[in-house]
Structure formats: C-alpha cells, structure tokens
C-alpha cells in the first residue's frame, strides 16, 4: 500500500491482465459468473422440493422475478423471450455482484463488454420486430398521420433515437459500475493515506472508512439495480418490437 506512494490510483483495478494468451481476468470472471449461475439453477433445483430449501428458494425467486418482469412488460406472449432476458439479467447481476468481492474483476465495468451486451439486445429486438411485422417494422420510424413533408426530418430523428438505445443502454451500465468502483477505491485510499499520518490521522481516517462502509452497501444496491434496469429496458424494447404500437 505504501508502494503506491501518495497518489490515488483509482483506475488500475480495471486493467486487464492476461492469464493465458488471449484469456484475461475479465474472461475468467465471465466464466465464473456463468458457472455460478448454472450451479445455482442446476443444484438449486435438484431437490425439486415442495417446501424449498435456501438454494432452491434463491433459484425460484430469481426465476419468478424475471418471469414477472417479462409478463408485466412484454405480456404473456413475451414469455418466449424469457430465456434470453433471464440469461442477460443473471449474467449482468452476477458480473456486478462478483465485482464486489475483494480481488475480483468487474467485467461489466468495460465498455467493450456492455456494448456487446447492448448490441446483442439491439440486434435481437430488431430481428424479432422484423420477423413478426416484416416490412411494417419500418413504419415504426414514421408515425401515421404525420405530414409527409416532415418525413426528411422525422425519419432520421427516429432512426437516431432508435440507434441511441445501444449507446444509452451500454453507457448506463458501464458508467455506473466504473463510477462506483472508482469511488470505493478513492475513499479506501483516503483511509490508507490518512492512516499513515500518525495518531491524528487515524482519527481522521475513520470518516472515509465509515463512508466506505456506506458506499459498499450502496454499490450492492447499484449492482442489483443496474442489472434490473438493463433487463427491464430489454423487456420494454421487446414490447415495442412485439406490439409496434
């Protein structure tokens, strides 16, 4: 810790470090997340008990939470997209939550990862809309009843608005995770730096330490909330694709 000197190094926690050539710590934690989700669902549902145990309760709560969200946002017929939304939600949730463990790497703090996830959502939603509605999908970009003379303005604006979903979806998740982890690191460094100032510093270090405790709790909230927001926006986009208004 003293090796860091008197500077705050908040960004090194996001550095990729290759474990094997082409396989980084980010990839490792993606595999860990996928493994943990599979283990939760497979082991949790193994007993198939009427009165569920702890692990089975967790698996059931996760299932019902996402199933309820899909039903409410997309409608009954939206349940055929449930596996996709569930996978997405659990992957992001576990990515965010694993990032809260000491020494862990938060793969959702990389824009490359979040853009990929957002592009998967975007392409799938567009494909669903075209598969269901065919050419009528393109009517989405021009509201009925609008003056045709305004088409050169309305259509580009609608297309930009549609494309901006990828940007806002990915940046929201990425920025929240980065901001949270930077704050944690900054205040943790304050504790170390103040603690190095002798007995008076130890008293002063209590304030950032207390703040960090609160921040950790807040980060758990954010970790869940961002996974939820990503999943619910996916549902809303799916709703638009299925019903096209």
């Amino acid at each position: 810790m003293a090796a860091e000197g008197k500077t705050i190094d908040a960004l090194s926690q996001f550095a990729l470090s290759p474990i094997v050539a082409g396989f980084t710590n980010s990839n490792l934690f993606m595999l860990v997340a996928a493994g943990a989700i599979s283990a939760l669902m497979i082991l949790g549902m193994k007993p198939r008990a009427m009165v569920p145990g702890r692990l089975q309760s967790l698996a059931e709560v996760a299932y019902e939470f996402v199933a309820g969200m899909v039903k409410e946002q997309v409608g009954k017929e939206g349940m055929r997209y449930f596996p996709f939304v569930f996978t997405l939600f659990m992957f992001i949730l576990f990515g965010n939550m694993l990032g809260m463990l000491p020494y862990a790497f938060t793969f959702t703090s990389h824009i490359a990862v979040t853009v990929t996830l957002a592009l998967i959502v975007f392409i799938l939603v567009t494909a669903v809309a075209i598969a269901i509605h065919g050419m009528r999908f393109f009517g989405y970009f021009f509201p009925e009843g609008a003056p045709v003379a305004l088409a050169p303005i309305i259509i580009p604006v609608e297309i930009i608005s549609y494309l901006s979903r990828v940007v806002s979806l990915s940046v929201r998740l990425f920025a929240n995770m980065v901001a949270g982890h930077v704050m944690l690191k900054v205040f943790a460094t304050f504790v170390v730096l103040l603690g190095g100032l002798g007995s008076l510093g130890l008293v002063g270090a209590a304030a950032p330490l207390a703040l960090n405790v609160a921040l950790v709790a807040f980060e758990f909230l954010v970790a869940f909330l961002q996974a939820y927001v990503f999943a619910i926006l996916t549902c809303i986009y799916l709703h638009d694709a299925v019903h096209l208004h």
């Binding site: 930009i160 608005s161 494309l163 901006s164 990828v166 940007v167 806002s168 940046v171 929201r172 920025a175």
Partner: peptide
C-alpha cells in the same frame, strides 16, 4: 442527460 448525450453521440457518429 444520458438520453440526450447518447442521441447526440449517435448523430455525430453518423
């Protein structure tokens, strides 16, 4: 703010 900025970014990108 994010909605505005992301739409602007897409517009500038195009």
């Amino acid at each position: 703010g994010l909605e505005v900025v992301s739409a602007l970014a897409v517009g500038v990108g195009i």
